[in-house]
């Protein structure tokens, strides 16, 4: 069953997070006014994305001046779709028309720019089709791209308090690192400004404090931390409140009483 919704309510960065953490394979279709886009994922990583329907790797690389029409013909003739190489892009590498690095760099830059523009879509319907794969002659990247840095870059382009406040309602909140950001953090490239903030996250200082110590505006700090948060590197928590009797933490019952309630519910 496809996942459907609107990016107004469940943003693109939220969806990328879900795809990443859920190791999803499939296609995310987006519609915004009269425009469409589709992103393909393999085990949580982006393999291809486009705002142009039916885009083919040969035509794209020709347009970008990376190969000639003769080379496209050569690769097409050498391509056995049912053979070892499943995509035309793989044949381009095998035929030494392009190096894998060059192909990756070219396609990744193209796909990423397409994806970044989608972050500007404030609303639009989405539909995620599980298991759907791109055409074999689509510009599929040889190496799938982790989504964390796509999220970070996409979020850099967000400049609306509204979206940020959904996740960070107050500058009194405290950012702290998630338990094991390790591998995920490696895919993320930070700007010097982001590093200044990243280095001051200690699980104690509030966003307001970080803004003061870095001499950055609270908005800038929140925007950067929103990026970390969306990419799953940090979480933000409320400042611990001193417990008062009125706060009344959860009641603790004796085990025997809880067992009685369980037995009663079971018997209903």
């Amino acid at each position: 069953m496809p996942l459907v919704g609107n990016i107004r309510d469940f943003g693109l960065s939220d969806f990328l997070y879900l795809v990443d953490r859920g190791y999803k394979t499939g296609a995310l279709h987006l519609n915004h006014e009269h425009e469409t886009a589709v992103l393909y994922f393999d085990k949580g990583k982006l393999i291809y994305g486009s705002r142009t329907q039916g885009e083919r790797v040969g035509e794209l690389l020709m347009r970008l001046g990376k190969i000639t029409s003769q080379q496209v013909e050569q690769a097409t003739q050498a391509w056995k779709p049912n053979g070892e190489e499943t995509t035309l892009a793989q044949v381009l590498v095998r035929e030494a028309i392009l190096s894998q690095e060059d192909l990756q760099r070219t396609l990744q830059a193209h796909v990423e720019e397409q994806v970044y523009t989608l972050f500007a879509w404030a609303e639009g319907e989405f539909r995620f089709e599980h298991g759907q794969k791109p055409e074999t002659d689509a510009p599929i990247m040889p190496m799938p791209v982790p989504v964390e840095h796509l999220i970070m870059e996409g979020v850099r382009r967000i400049d609306e308090w509204g979206r940020i406040k959904d996740r960070i309602p107050s500058t009194d909140m405290i950012p702290r690192f998630v338990d094991q950001p390790g591998e995920r953090a490696k895919g993320v490239k930070l700007s010097p400004e982001e590093w200044r903030i990243f280095a001051r996250i200690n699980g104690k200082d509030s966003l307001a404090t970080i803004a003061r110590t870095t001499s950055l505006s609270e908005f800038d700090v929140c925007r950067v931390v929103y990026g970390f948060l969306t990419a799953g590197l940090v979480e933000v928590v409320r400042k611990p409140k001193a417990q008062t009797p009125r706060d009344g933490g959860p009641s603790r019952l004796k085990r025997s009483l809880v067992s009685r309630i369980i037995n009663r519910v079971r018997s209903m």
Binding site: R252, L253, K254, R255, V258, I262, V265, R266
Partner: peptide, 14 residues
């Protein structure tokens, strides 16, 4: 029941 099992784990002896 799932919630009660969590509460049971945290409950005190007796």
């Amino acid at each position: 029941l799932e919630l009660l099992y969590i509460i049971l784990e945290r409950s005190s002896e007796g």
